[in-house]
Design a protein around this nucleic acid. Sequence first.
DNA 1: CAGTGAGCGAGCTTCCGCTTGACTT
Length: 798
Amino acid sequence: MAKNLVIVESPAKAKTIEGFLGKDYVVKSSFGHVRDLVKKGMGVDVENDFAPNYEVQEDKKNVISELKKLSKSAEKVWLASDEDREGEAISWHLSEVLDLDKKKTCRIVFHEITKNAILDAIAHPRDIDQHLVNAQQARRVLDRLVGFELSPVLWRKIKPSLSAGRVQSVAVRLIVDREREYNDFRSVSAFRVLAEFITPRNQSLHAELQNRFPEFGDAEKFLRACDQATFNVENLDIKPGKKSPSAPFTTSTLQQEASRKLGFSVAQTMSVAQRLYESGKITYMRTDSTNLSDLALNTAADTILKMFGKAYHQRRQFRTKSKGAQEAHEAIRPTYLSNPNVEGDAQEKKLYDLIWKRTMASQMSEAQLEKTTVTIGISNSPEKFIAKGEVIKFDGFLKLYIESADEEEQDGAEGILPMTIPGELLNMDHMDAIEKFSLPPARYTEASLVKKLEELGIGRPSTYAPTISTIQNRGYVEKGERDGVKRALRLISLKNHMVKISEKHENTGSDKGKLLPTDIGMVVNDFLIAHFPGIVDYHFTATVEKEFDDIAEGNLSWQNMLKKFYGQFHEQVSQTIENSDRAKTDRLLGTDPNSGKNVYAKIGRFGPMVQIGENTDEEKPRFSSLQAHQRIETITLHDAMELFKLPRSLGSYQQKEVTVSAGRFGPYVKWGDLFASLTKEDNPLSIGIDRAIELIEIKKQKDQDKLIRVFDGNPDVKILKGRWGPYLAHKKENFRLPKDAVVESMSLEDCLKIIGSNSSAKSKAASSKPVAKASAPKKKSTTAKASKGSSKSVKKKK
DNA sequence: CAGTGAGCGAGCTTCCGCTTGACTT
């Protein structure tokens, strides 16, 4: 039996460390937190100094029983969870749950996983820092109080199953606020003038006029005047410049760059990084630190020297800028910096390449630049043309890595300029004035939202990706799917003494992949702002973090901190439940020109819809649901009236009528009893019969492909092909087939037997509560399934 | 999968952070 038990948070880390320590040590993982507030109910005794009611999480029971066994027989237990608030709490919970003897328990920490660091940590053990633990308890309890008191208010005043929390509600607010800025934005246009000049040495020089003309007429007048003008080099300015590399990756910056450069979603980046971490290729991927270990700095230096030479190396240590960073880990970097690439699938290779280059570049020298600006004067006008060039004198880190920016506004300087001499004349080859529209504020992408959250100190490396899923799963936010529309640009060109006016087109307003608030997202957001402004304030987290720090330093008791917060918060909750009306979602759009009745946009039982007439009218109001991209806040009366043109009859196909309509799951065509969904590209208001028939035929084929077997005796029993292989369908219920079933040889009786023994109506009657399924181990109760599914993705709307 | 347009009833929903697998109708 091992003398020493070391407990860390992650199994991959445990494996590595075990290699460093001798056979006297066994290293195990706790798999993160092992104990949490009880799942059911508040789990906090508010009356009794906020006493938390903890329980071992269901999925950690096995872990705990193994650790218990090992710790009882070990001479010494080393708690080696991360050195931050959450890590300290994990150690404390472990010591409580495992009932560790204080005398044989040590708390150790290390920031890098190297043999020296581990041995050093073991040589300097300490006790658990109770202040830090208390800061975590305050954090945990506060989040529970906020989440579990606020959400029920939403159930009562808006609709059931909604949620609110310190992090998610602010994330939604950011997106709602930005969407409104976007909608309020009024684009203006101005004409930018671009010209190509020819130098006396017959080289071409591209330049842009410093000013832009808001008016078409002024632009045209200017071009006509330029036809008569001469141009000269008024000034030539050459300045040295430099560029420095960015810091190595943290979780947030990795997510941003992988999104920009590789097109990865935030969740995708994390899962690929996890695989690289587990196979030992990179360091831990959930970190807010930009630090590199000495070992890493040294190997980087060696590798750069070998690959590029001494001039390219510059040792650097970066300071972390992000708010509330806890720095329990290193930056994300390759484990072995001498490996420029690794084995793995395409995604792993690409992400590794990005991490390797970024890390290496961070240890390389600055790039030296030469920036050139040529000012060109016009004989008959005070306006100036400017040509900008940039030459790289020494590439430095740029040899490896260029960080990309969010907005690709490339007005910047580029390339080398031809030689010019101050005072000399230039020939104008041609000149264009192009209309340019100002851009609305950019909507958030997954990655830019993460960036913003990090700036505000909201959320942690381990929660960025889950937060983005949560706000989408709750239906507060959706990803845009629409291509933009074409917009005409006016263009005036001058060449060979001729002025020509023409039109160009650009694409604008695409929301593909952008985060857009839904109607319910906006309603919930406005409700929270109206009644709980403090909680959804952008700086709420930063403020409470300061107090958590005070607790961690022992200057504030965690119960007092909560008392102060909760008194006021709870009062607001009671007030709101008591006094506020249900959130109103109705918006009056105008009157229906046909009936003279009011037209409303509102959230109905099945989502956003428009309605003609009042609910109280004797004649039932007419309803129609909004299209996916339409919003209550912005839909016009005209667009609403268009929706009432559904259902539309398109004619008939094979003697059956074809109609198009919009249902709960989007627009569809109906033909007999067949329903076929429209694709994103189809518009139900304009779709024609030919396209409808195409969709019907596709759907017919699909249904046929799905059907594997039917039985003569009973048309209700079908074997269908699903995502996970064949399954049995009977009326509205589905059943899984036994593992060893051979579909071809099954009889109707076999199928009926499965249906009979698994039918939900029957099992429900037999046991209203999920009783232990001792009789049939294969059988899964529907309740067990539902709870499993909901923990992963809550998509159920029934 | 399903294609609709509500108010007598019974219990449920929900938070944030720390970690990996399990295994889907």
